[in-house]
Amino acid sequence: MTGILYLVATPIGNLKDITFRAIETLQTVDLIAAEDTRHTAKLLNHYQIKTQTISYHQHNHQARVSELITKLLNGLNIALVTDAGTPAISDPGYHLVLACIESNINIIPIPGAIAAINGLVASGLPTEKFCFEGFLPTKKKLREELLNKLQTEKRTLIFYEAPHKLQKTLTDLADFLGINRNICLARELTKIHENFWRGNLQKAIEFYQHHEPKGEYTIIIEGNKEQEEIELSETQIKEEIEKLLKQGMSKTEASQKLAKYTNLSRREIYQLMISKN
C-alpha cells in the first residue's frame, strides 16, 4: 500500500482561515512538506500540531521530489503546504504532484484560501471568466512577450506582486495594456491591514508615487474591451498611424492603441512609424 499526498491549503494571513479537515489532516499525516518550516511552525504551534516537517521549496524541490516519492511508496502519508494559500499555485508543488501521478500515488486536495480568488471576488471586476498569470517573468524579453499576448485578452487578469516591484509592474502593465484599464489592487488579504484600491492604471501609478507599497499584492485588471483583433495590411496600418498622430497622440500611445486590435505587436507598429517615410 502506497501512502497519500495531501495538498493542504493553509491561511493566507489570518490563522483562523483554515478548515477543520485541514487541521485533522496535518495532525494525522506522517510528514508535512513545507515551503518554509519555520513559517509553517507558527501555524502548527497555534493548533498544537506535533507532526514532523521537512522543507520543500523552489531551491531544493528537484532533489526533494525523489525523496518524498520514496517515502510515499513506502506507505507514508505526506501533507504538502505552502507558506500561504493553496499548494502548487505559484510554487513548485506542481513537480511533486506530477511525480505522484507518474508513480500512481493517490493525491487528495484539501481546499482552502487562495489570494487570487479572494482578490477577484472583492475587486468589482467581472468574475465570470478570468485568467490567472501569477508573477510576471523577471526577464525583460519574456515579460514583454507575455504582456504582448495579453493585450487582447478579454478575460479579467490576475497577477501577484511583491511591494518593491509594484511600481515597475504597474508601469509595464500601463505600457502594454493602456493607462485606462480598470484595476483593483488587493493588499495584505485577510490580515489586519487588508486594503482594496480601485481605479485605473494611470491613477494607480500616480497613487503609488506618493504612497510606499507595503505588503503582498494581488492585482486584478479588467480584460480588453476593444474590438476584436483584425488583420490590416502595412499600408492600412500606416494610414491609421497618420490619423492617430494627427489627433495628437504620441508615437508610443498610437502604437499601444493599434496593437490592441491588430495582428502586430506594439514594437512592430512602432517600427512602422519610424520607417513610414
Rank of each mutant, 00 (worst) to 15 (best):
P163R: 03
E240T: 03
D91A: 06
K42M: 05
G119L: 04
T10I: 10
P126A: 11
T28N: 09
N182C: 02
A122R: 12
L157V: 03
L264C: 11
T86F: 09
S255T: 13
V65S: 07
H59A: 13
W197L: 14
F130K: 00
G3P: 11
G93V: 12
I269T: 12
Q247H: 12
A9I: 01
I237Q: 03
D83H: 06
G112H: 12
T19M: 03
K165V: 10
N14M: 11
A162M: 11
T51W: 09
L173M: 07
L173F: 05
T2M: 11
N45C: 14
K140E: 06
N224V: 02
A34M: 15
G13K: 12
Q209M: 01
L43N: 03
I107G: 10
Q227V: 07
S123D: 01
V121W: 01
I18N: 03
I69P: 07
E24A: 03
L173P: 00
N148K: 06
T37W: 07
L7H: 05
N182E: 10
V8R: 03
V97D: 02
I237T: 15
N45W: 08
A22T: 05
R155I: 00
L232V: 05
S250H: 14
E153F: 03
I274E: 13
L173C: 03
Q247N: 14
I241F: 15
T86L: 07
Q48D: 11
A79D: 12
Q167V: 08
Y160S: 04
A33H: 13
H46I: 04
T235L: 08
T82H: 09
Q151Y: 01
M273H: 09
M273W: 09
I205Q: 07
T2Q: 14
A88S: 14
I107N: 12
N263K: 09
I54Y: 12
N200L: 01
T37S: 09
L31D: 14
E253H: 14
T25S: 12
A84P: 04
H193K: 14
G75E: 02
E234T: 15
H210Q: 13
T19H: 03
A186V: 01
I219T: 00
A162I: 09
T51N: 12
I18P: 01
L136K: 05
I78P: 02
T10S: 12
P163E: 00
I219R: 00
K203D: 08
T2K: 14
N277F: 12
I114Y: 06
H46Q: 13
K246F: 13
A84Y: 01
T37I: 08
E161L: 13
V81P: 06
H95E: 04
H193N: 14
N182F: 02
N180C: 02
E145V: 08
L96Y: 02
L170P: 13
T82R: 06
H39K: 08
L173E: 02
R64V: 15
T218Y: 00
I108W: 11
E35H: 07
A9P: 11
C184D: 01
E222C: 11
K238V: 11
L15C: 05
I110S: 10
I220W: 00
L43T: 03
L272E: 13
E133V: 04
L120M: 06
C184R: 00
H193D: 09
Q271I: 14
A22G: 10
F135W: 15
A79T: 13
E24F: 04
M249Y: 15
F135Q: 10
H46G: 02
Q52K: 15
N106P: 14
H46A: 11
V8S: 07
N195G: 01
T70W: 06
L177P: 01
N45L: 15
T25R: 06
